[in-house]
Amino acid sequence: MTCLPEIRPGQKKLGLVIDLDTCVGCHACATNCKEWNASGHSGPLPDFKPFSAGAEGVWFNRVHSYEAGEGGEGRTVHFPRSCLHCETPDCVTVCPTGASYKRAEDGIVLVNHDTCIGCGLCAWACPYGAREMDEDEGVMKKCTLCVDRIYNETIPEAQRQPACVLTCPTRARHFGDLGDPDSAVSRLVAERGGTGLMPELGYGPVNRYLPPRRTTSVDPGPQEDAPTPLDVKNPLLRWMDKVLSR
């Protein structure tokens, strides 16, 4: 059914919180996502010309890098982009077959690959570019929030998290229930002022992005009159200066 589940108060809203302050843009999340999902619920994921020029395939997570702000305030921000498991997403309601659906119990947005006709309309309806057509199988694929890990009783409990979250070397990714105001992820969002993307379109994205922390003071640069090591002629003093300024 592609009508959206009714929104109840206290609704469980599983999602990701991504810390743009600590993300180093290493692409580990994207790589581990591909690794897990190529053989999971949505597998296989196609790769065309994998070993030559023009290599491309379906990925559920893409890591962009941006430059934001000007001059001393400017900074590089790495930005992983994946499905935000929106609360009122048109990617679900436009689907003519009912293959695209949002689960009432936890809010995860999934595609039923057995009924999808591969019309591609849901990908047009997603503002965030979170859906990619599997042109091998002729059906739409997208992030499943690792639905086949998070409830998987055959793996140790500590591993029942999305693959991207587990693999992140800087712990920039967090997973939890954003519908519960007391959950660890909700508290993190409140503390850091996490934001949703393109709120103006009204999709109600669930995932949150934690903004890069403000640098407290901009480094004024070297002082003109402070002696630099090259200004100190006496070798003993030069050595002492080097040791002391370590």
């Binding site: 743009l20 843009g25 994207a30 020029a53 023009g54 290599a55 491309e56 395939g57 379906v58 990925w59 893409r62 890591v63 962009h64 890098s65 941006y66 430059e67 934001a68 702000g69 000007e70 305030e73 400017g74 900074r75 590089t76 921000v77 930005f79 982009r81 990908a123 503002p127 965030y128 990619e132 057509m133 042109e135 934001t195 949703g196 993307l197 393109m198 992005y209 903004p211 890069p212």
Partner: peptide, 22 residues
């Protein structure tokens, strides 16, 4: 789209992939 407007004007620096995609 990125939520980075609070820092200032935003522009793409590096693309997520070097080849094209769907």
């Amino acid at each position: 789209a990125t939520g980075l407007g609070a820092i200032g004007r935003t522009r793409p620096l590096e693309p997520p992939h070097t080849e094209t995609n769907y």
